[in-house]
Write a protein that binds this DNA or RNA. Structure first.
Lengths: 192, 192
DNA sequence: CAATTTTTGTACCCGAAGTTCCAAAAAGGA
DNA sequence: TCCTTTTTGGAACTTCGGGTACAAAAATTG
């Protein structure tokens, strides 16, 4: 019943994710969204209600695609250290290969909105928790396999890995070449 | 010659730093500045020219006070690991003790403006460089003193420390209690 | 095809953002 | 004291932000 939408809301959320990711929440205007989603203002507000609501959908989309991809890599089979290295190298490549230097949408959102927007903060917190848990699981697996030192606290090491990744993704936004980031990876894998 | 200013520009920059630090660049309005600096619009624009110019002064002030303080701690005499620990613990205390959860102004600026504002990006990059160098110097000192493993690459370890600190200050904005951050510190100092 | 429901585009609204203008005020110098 | 210079507060201005209103368009049901 009723007229069907002329656009794919799912695809629109994807594009909204790109915009918010690139510009941040405050610097994205309804006009930006209208331009980049290729739909009219009427449709935008009819479909999503508000800029804020669309932002939340966009951040959820990020969690379900980008953040989930990292977790998936960490859960692959094989030697743990190699897996960690390839995950970290991938992030570096993505971050430096991106001309817009967007970094990580979740990290950017933490920096911009944590302490101001409780719901957004919660979303980000849960992404961080999930990533940390994936790191921890990988480390425990490595310890069982005898690949990593069993004396180390796996949870603490997981926290260290999460935090380092978050830091890398901020630093990647400011850096000229990949050298510093490769140093970080080497030092980190050397150290755990 | 001419009428003297009714306010202290230096103190005004200090207050501007607080505002930009708390709200970010885009979300700070001239009205916010007028309110919080306690001066009129005319004075504001007469003295500083633009919001953007004042922002740069504010970020420079941050570098000369807050960022310099961390570097100073890292350059103190005494055992290196203890020094590193106290520096990291201090950051955790500052970040969690701050009701506004502002995190680090430089890190927030990187997340918001890197790739968009070259001058701001440069300022942040230099702060990162300086901090990394201070970490590296501390580590080399620890190696000379026999306190740290000489086989490790001091520069890479410095990069790791910088990156981890950057990550911690983002994570601190989203976190409920200090546990995760303390785990990070423990794992990091254990690992180097 | 009439009735109903939903979408779409456009016009419009109100307030705020970022800045400029300007006349009055306050200093120092001739 | 008059002149010059600079600051000050506030009005004014232009553009934009975020959102609403609404009539026309396009589908569905019977």
């Amino acid at each position: 019943m009723g007229r069907p939408k002329q656009f794919d809301p799912d695809a629109a959320v994807d594009r909204a994710m790109e915009v918010f990711w690139r510009k941040g929440y405050a610097s994205t205007s309804p006009q930006d969204l209208v331009d980049e989603l290729g739909i009219g203002r009427g449709s935008l507000y009819n479909a999503f209600g508000s800029k804020r609501a669309l932002f939340e959908l966009a951040l959820g989309r990020y969690r379900d695609t980008q953040a989930a991809e990292l977790v998936a890599i960490l859960e692959e089979p094989g030697p743990v250290k190699a897996r960690l290295r390839s995950a970290l190298e991938l992030l570096v490549e993505l971050d430096l290969g991106d001309a817009g230097r967007r970094g990580c949408f979740a990290v950017n959102t933490a920096a911009e909105l944590a302490g101001v927007d409780p719901d957004a903060t919660d979303l980000v917190r849960r992404m961080f928790d999930r990533t940390e848990a994936a790191f921890q699981a990988a480390i425990e697996e490595g310890q069982r396999a005898g690949e990593l030192d069993r004396a180390r606290d796996a949870k603490a090491t997981g926290s260290l890995l999460l935090t380092t990744v978050v830091g890398m993704r901020v630093v990647a936004k400011t850096v000229e070449g990949p050298e510093r980031l490769h140093r970080v990876i080497d030092a980190l894998l050397d150290a755990i």
